[in-house]
Amino acid sequence: MNTFGKIFRLTSFGESHGRGIGGIIDGCPAGIELDMDLIQKDLARRKPGQSKITTQRKEADQVEFLSGIFEGKTQGTPIAFIIWNKDQHSNDYNNLKDVYRPSHADYTYQQKYGTRDHRGGGRSSARETIARVVAGAIAKQILAVKGITIQAFVSQVGEVKMEKPYTETDLTKTDDNIVRCPDEETAAKMIERIEKAGKNHDTVGGTVSCVARGIPAGWGEPVFNKLHADLGFAMLGINAVKGFEYGSGFAGTKLSGSEHNDVFIHSKDGIRTKTNNSGGIQGGISNGEDIYFNVAFKPIATLLKEQQTVDKDSNEVTINPKGRHDPCVLPRAVPIVESMAALVLVDHFLLSKLNSM
């Protein structure tokens, strides 16, 4: 399954060390005026080599559109695009050709397909997410016309957690530092934690939080395509993601029903809820409040230190991988989370238009 979405659909292609990564977007409405600089800006937020706490692979990640856009506007036809790979060091992986790296997709890909591209993980590499960022950047521009904003940020790295709730935080400061945490004091501690992992040739995981604002009540389906279920499906499809929670999440299990219920009130903006433990979604349908959720990322599986494993013939071997790898994926994952959220929301926006016809 290389296609995501129901009406606004992205099909991605390419491998980490192939000629390039690209995609085809189908179902995009015609007449959308695109800001190419905004698309490229999101790609720059995801690209490698952007700071001292990310992999030093150097890629410009310049997108080239091949079809579907004329004079800066979408045509309603398939939008094809590609980002060429420039800085592959495929030889770094030659000694891993017949080896199954711990916690990677090497073994499972071999079992499923009977073959695999060992160069940087091939199709299972997080470099595939570059296609999602292009499509998500377009989706965000469609949603922006409706006054909808999506902002993700790093809220936890290892044991270092941002304690302040997002409602008391200036999320516009997210990109003011290299770890993409809007709280300056916490960001400094996060950077220190990532640098510590890197010096030890180790890795560290954490959490990316995301807030979507301006979504009207009524988006989502009540049974099999609940809005939160589609968001969870999208987030769990991102490389290295191990968990998803929305609204009060697991912390809500510690509350009583009377504490957790979101009481409806009348305001100048119409019917609202006094609290938002529901995370902006009730019965699988948006209720007009902020949609917010957390995405848990594991520590990156590639360690630049010795590990024990086996090869394809079940021989025990010791590996000491080379190459350029992130000690922490979180800063570069922020635009990916935003993009996948945008793809889900623009799809439900288009579905809501069909439901009202």
Rank of each mutant, 00 (worst) to 15 (best):
N276C: 08
E259F: 06
D290C: 05
N277S: 12
L255G: 07
I271G: 02
N276D: 12
G279M: 05
F264Q: 00
N287L: 00
G270W: 04
D269N: 11
N277I: 09
I281V: 06
G279W: 01
I265R: 12
G288R: 11
L255K: 13
S256K: 14
R272G: 00
G283R: 05
F264R: 03
S256L: 03
E259W: 07
S286Q: 10
S278Y: 12
G257V: 09
S278R: 13
I291D: 09
G288C: 09
K268R: 11
G257F: 10
I291A: 12
R272A: 01
S258D: 14
G279H: 07
G280W: 05
I285C: 08
K274L: 15
D290T: 10
G283N: 08
K274T: 10
D269C: 03
T273R: 14
S267F: 05
N276R: 11
D262S: 09
D269A: 06
G252M: 00
G252I: 00
I281Q: 03
I281L: 03
G257W: 03
E289T: 01
N261I: 15
L255S: 10
D269K: 15
G252W: 00
I291L: 12
N276P: 08
S286R: 04
G257T: 08
G279S: 06
G284Y: 03
S267N: 08
S278Q: 13
Q282L: 14
S267E: 12
G270E: 02
I271L: 15
T275G: 04
S258N: 14
N287G: 00
K274G: 06
I285D: 08
G288T: 10
K274A: 15
G257K: 07
N287Q: 01
L255F: 13
A251V: 11
G283W: 09
R272M: 06
I271P: 01
K254T: 12
H266I: 15
Q282P: 02
V263P: 03
Q282G: 03
G279F: 05
N277E: 11
F264P: 02
S258K: 14
T273C: 10
K254H: 07
E259Y: 06
T253G: 15
E259P: 03
N277M: 09
T253D: 10
T273P: 13
I265D: 03
T253S: 14
S278V: 07
G257R: 14
I285W: 08
V263K: 15
Q282T: 10
S267M: 08
N276T: 06
G280F: 04
G252E: 00
H266S: 15
G270S: 04
G284F: 01
E289F: 04
E289H: 02
E289C: 04
N276V: 02
S267T: 15
E289Y: 02
N287A: 00
I271E: 05
S267W: 09
H266D: 14
N287E: 02
S278L: 12
N277C: 07
K254C: 02
E289M: 15
D290R: 10
G283S: 09
K254L: 09
H260V: 07
